[in-house]
Design a protein around this nucleic acid. Structure first.
Ligand SMILES: [Mn+2]
Ligand SMILES: [Mn+2]
Ligand SMILES: [Mn+2]
Ligand SMILES: [Mn+2]
Lengths: 218, 218
DNA sequence: CATATAATTTAGACTAACCTAAAATATCCA
DNA sequence: TGGATATTTTAGGTTAGTCTAAATTATATG
């Protein structure tokens, strides 16, 4: 078994791998794990001993198949628990991350599978992120950045790129939760800001920054 | 905040207090915590520093109000999660203890309260143990040991004294889960064994040991 | 290409939770 | 009531995960 700490490192390395090419650097891990580079070096050696990462001094790390599998299962648990909190316990999408961060370490395959079933085998979490299956497969999506849509395009809010609470709360305030039907009514070339219209006829102005962080299913 | 380990010690001390008079001894704690007396002494000093127990060398410990409150909240969480696992995820009553042992440490008051509501504010867990309220009140029950009932008495299986998997599985095999309606049809003075009859007409022979560990609501 | 700077690793230290062995104290009972 | 025995504490050590400061290696730039 792996400790909570080891699991958090594996997940962090996995997420960094999604975002960048090549090996993951010690500093990058330290950054997201909120620790110091020296601590990362220690941990990375331990993970390498356990064959969960490939590591050579000064070269950064890469997850092995084994390490990646574990990371994906933790992400699966994290996202399923987020669904539970939002769909069953009526949490808001900006309230669930920290709790899921703890729940993701509960160690019981039966529990995860039963939870998955109880939730109706959801494919995406409350932030639109895909939930890997029991065997680690992520389902594909047809999500596009709102910023890239054309005038007249219609769709539904399906996810976010920025997962910060401030961003989620901003969307909440604009009543732009997951599933909201919208159409792009105006694109301003000058500053790339957009105006969208919701199903209930509200026109909402969104800056480039915001439009770039909203994913729409079309 | 308290570590998982501290929480487990507090809960262990609380449960020992339920079972015996006077101060709780170092050895008794070591026994239930599966550690050595020397380790307990260390921890007990730390808990005393935090004002969670009263401790004097060689005198054993007693929970303070503060320590007791924490212990009760952990028990609340443990039992609510057990309800969740059994009532919502279809776990058997002999499968939930270890998972709840981990879940009980998840730290979110909102989560506990929402879970309580989601479950319909249950008063007893799947083993018939009372679930303390948000403010730490245990509800009273009218449960009696099956062994103490008289011939002709009727009631429902409402709890167990022995929480071991072997005992729970034995009851499961006899189809004597929580809520099963029974009547005491025969008491044998000689060995204190009993015969009970279920609502669907099955006559079940139970030894003194078994009858002593079944609680019946009458 | 040599050196300045940045990234990484090593060295040494800390805390939490555990251990064993030895010392101190309490309890029991002849 | 005074050992013998049992309980508890202390002393000293271990491991996981963290830290700071110093040493090492990589990289970038003039
Ligand atoms: Mn986590
Ligand atoms: Mn999410
Ligand atoms: Mn526990
Ligand atoms: Mn229980």
């Amino acid at each position: 078994m792996n400790s909570y700490t080891e699991e958090n490192y594996l997940k962090a390395i996995y997420k960094l791998t999604e975002q960048s090419e090549g090996n993951i650097t010690t500093n990058a891990i330290a950054e997201v794990m909120n620790t110091k580079a020296a601590s990362v070096t220690d941990m990375v050696k331990k993970l390498a001993d356990k064959k969960l990462v490939n590591y050579a001094k000064y070269q950064g790390v890469r997850l092995t198949k084994k390490g990646e599998d574990i990371a994906i299962q933790i992400i699966r648990k994290h996202r399923l628990w987020e669904c539970f909190l939002v769909n069953k316990l009526n949490f808001k999408w900006d309230e669930v991350h920290d709790i899921a961060e703890e729940l993701e370490h509960i160690n019981s395959t039966t529990l995860v599978d039963r939870l998955d079933e109880f939730l109706g085998f959801p494919k995406f979490d409350p932030h639109g992120d895909p939930i890997p299956s029991k065997n680690g497969i992520f389902s594909a999506n047809n999500f596009y950045k709102l910023l890239k849509l054309n005038e007249g395009d219609i769709g539904k809010v399906a996810g976010v790129c920025d997962h910060s609470n401030t961003f989620l709360q901003y969307l909440e305030k604009q009543k732009l939760g997951l599933g909201t039907s919208i159409s792009l009514t105006e694109k301003n070339e000058y500053d790339q800001s957009v105006v969208i219209t919701t199903a209930d006829g509200r026109a909402i102005f969104l800056s480039k920054e915001v439009a770039n962080n909203i994913l729409v299913a079309i």
